[in-house]
Computed example of a mutant assay.
Amino acid sequence: MRKLAGKRIALLGSRKIEEIGKLVENQGGIAFSRPAQGTTLLKDDKLQDHVRLLIKESFEWIIFTTGIGVETIYQTALDMNEGDALINSLQKANIAARGYKTVNTLKKLDITPSVRDDDGSTAGLIREFSAHSLTGRKVALQLHGDPAPRLKQWLEDNHADYEEILPYTHIPPDENVMNQLLSELLDGKLDSVFFTSTPQVRNLFTFARKKKADTQLKSCLSEQVVALSVGKVTAQALHEEGIERVIFPEAERIGSAVIELARFYN
């Protein structure tokens, strides 16, 4: 018997939905697309200014949180004919990185982080950073798609003089879809909800708070509906919203997450 037989699972991502749906169906589940990612648009007019800032400002620490963020910054520098200048600045600074994709992307540029997370999460990065004093230090924080409130709060608490790099405009997901998703969750029409990024977590809880239903949502995901996460970083975002029971794989892979959910139900 297939382990997800009859389980109704909402997919909150907006990419590879057919592929993920097929993985769920192969385990006997029923997949519903409920995109909660929203849209993230790069502010191109600001990006070149921020690349110049990285080159000229002599930051003592530069924190990278995503591989795609590193790639975007470097590609922009190349377009500006400032690729070598950027690499030179990065090599002079202390580099901190969250996530294996970020570390691998930096490695391609011959940059080795002084600090990196121990488990792929923001909490892990903060843990490893705790040995360093940031009081009064000039820090650049690269963001992508997620405002990283915990990391920003930690920098403020440690009195760092930080600048956010990579300005994005965040367009929230379709309100009709979010209404449908929230109603299905609270009405018991779903068995599990699959989060594949931290913005999906933020968007769902922000919407629930707007509808004054966040307490009900927290109760729902703690008791009735199983929260499934693609990996530790997204799971951490759910933990920060008060959801303790989160199913996720050791290796951040979509297929591994679906198998983990099947094991949970088995």
Rank of each mutant, 00 (worst) to 15 (best):
Y74P: 01
Y74E: 02
Y74L: 01
Q75L: 01
T76G: 02
E82I: 03
G83C: 05
G83E: 01
G83A: 05
A85Y: 04
N88H: 00
S89E: 09
S89A: 08
Q91G: 06
K92R: 01
A96N: 03
A96D: 06
G99C: 08
G99P: 00
Y100D: 12
K101H: 11
T102M: 07
T102Y: 13
T102A: 08
N104T: 12
N104R: 05
T105R: 06
T105D: 05
K107D: 00
K107A: 06
L109E: 08
I111K: 07
I111A: 02
P113E: 05
S114W: 08
V115K: 03
D117P: 04
D117Y: 10
D117G: 09
G120P: 02
T122S: 14
G124A: 13
L125I: 15
I126E: 07
E128P: 01
E128R: 09
F129A: 07
S130F: 08
A131P: 02
H132N: 09
S133F: 02
L134Y: 11
G136Y: 11
G136V: 05
V139C: 12
Q142L: 13
L143R: 12
H144P: 00
G145C: 09
D146L: 13
A148V: 13
L151A: 10
L151Y: 13
L151C: 04
W154I: 09
L155T: 06
E156I: 15
A160K: 13
Y162G: 01
Y162C: 09
E163Y: 03
E164T: 05
P167Q: 11
P167V: 13
Y168I: 15
H170M: 03
I171H: 08
P172G: 06
P172E: 15
P173T: 07
N176Y: 14
V177L: 02
V177M: 09
L182I: 14
L182D: 01
L182K: 00
S183Y: 11
E184Q: 10
K189I: 15
D191V: 14
D191I: 15
V193T: 15
F195N: 11
F195Q: 11
T196Q: 12
T196I: 15
S197M: 12
T198W: 10
P199L: 09
